Amino acid sequence: MSSAQTIIGLVYDYDQTLSPSYMTDEVVFPHFGINGAQFWKRTKELVDEQGYDNELAYLKALLDYLSPDRPSNAELRTLGAKLQFYPGLPGMFDEMEKVLRPEHRALGIRLEHYIISAGLKELLEGSALRPHVKAVFGSEFAEDREGRISFPRRVISHTTKTQFLFRINKGMLLPHEDVNDHMPSELRPIPFKHMIYIGDGPTDVPCFTLMRRYGGNAVAVYNPEDQTRGSFRKCWQLSGQADRVRHIAPSDYRPGSHLRLLVEEMVEEIADGILRRQRDEVENATISAPGY
């Protein structure tokens, strides 16, 4: 028996996608008095001189700077409440429901939102976005016997982000579920063609590529307030010669913005496709009564 496959998944990167700031710079550094320039210099040294992966270098440097009085995960979650976002968030998550028409809802079509970030999951768990999303995937720390963060429990890099797209695709959202288990495509709750991925740059390339390969949708966003135009250039390159995405838009999530119009059209197009498929299946399964 096939799955109903009536869920549309909207998946977001976080840093520079939903927020103009990096989450650690915005709330962790000020709270603990960490010099951001020195922190990122140290992170780069770990990569260049000691061969660390970028994400592990970031987590090690963070643990070093927070020692010896490291916070708990609960404290990090509390800091997440201070995170700020691009215009239109978090209101957009609920407003998007209006795109679905009564005939879509009657069929059970609905939206689910997800965040996949290399940043700290606990900050996002405490943010104003969390009540509006189905799941958050991010890097995590384990705690020691005193309840203080001690060692990376989960590290998400720009390449491993794709694992979580497959988790969403298969409905395997919990860490203990083996995403490599075989699941026929017709049983997967959210086919890739029913997904929309929104990211901001080169770190999202693996996810953009996966979306293109499996018929999904992707949008690269840029900060319109960036006077250097660096944010825009990243998106321009992704949509040009690199051919990673078809659409780019400013990071403005308010009603009527270019980004909102793009995403709303994608949602409506996917919903109409689900509706059309379901109607075709009913018609093809129906046998006309004998004529007289």
Rank of each mutant, 00 (worst) to 15 (best):
V219G: 03
T162N: 01
G201P: 02
H158Q: 11
C207T: 05
V221E: 13
R229P: 11
F151T: 11
T160I: 02
R229W: 15
G230S: 14
V219N: 00
F208Q: 03
M172F: 13
V205G: 05
M183I: 07
T160H: 00
V179D: 06
R153D: 15
S150T: 15
Y197S: 04
R154I: 06
K161P: 05
P191N: 12
V221P: 12
V221A: 12
C207V: 00
M172S: 12
N223T: 14
E177H: 14
G230P: 10
R154S: 08
R167T: 03
G199S: 08
I168Q: 02
G147Y: 03
D178R: 09
D181F: 02
N169Y: 12
M211W: 00
D204A: 01
F192D: 10
N180M: 10
H176D: 09
N169S: 12
G171N: 06
G230V: 04
T228I: 07
K161E: 03
S157F: 06
K170T: 10
M183K: 14
Q227C: 07
P202S: 04
L165P: 05
I196E: 07
K161N: 07
R148L: 15
A220Y: 01
P191S: 13
M211C: 06
G199I: 00
N217E: 15
A218R: 00
N217I: 09
T209R: 04
T162I: 03
P206S: 08
Q227N: 11
P152S: 13
G230I: 04
V155D: 06
P175L: 06
G215V: 01
Y197W: 02
H158M: 05
P189S: 12
H158G: 01
G171L: 09
N217Y: 09
F166R: 11
L173Q: 02
R229K: 15
S157Q: 13
R188V: 00
G230L: 13
T160E: 00
P184N: 11
G147T: 01
V155S: 03
P191M: 09
G171V: 08
G230C: 11
S185D: 14
P191Q: 09
D200S: 10
F208T: 10
F164N: 10
Y197H: 02
N223Q: 14
P202K: 15
H176C: 04
G216M: 06
N217L: 09
R188P: 01
S231K: 04
V221I: 09
P175N: 12
Y222M: 08
G216H: 01
M172Y: 13
I156V: 13
T162H: 03
R153F: 06
I168Y: 04
H182L: 07
H194L: 04
N223C: 13
P191H: 08
H194K: 11
A218L: 00
R153E: 13
F192I: 15
R153A: 15
M211V: 07
K161R: 03
M183F: 02
V155W: 05
E225S: 12
K170D: 08
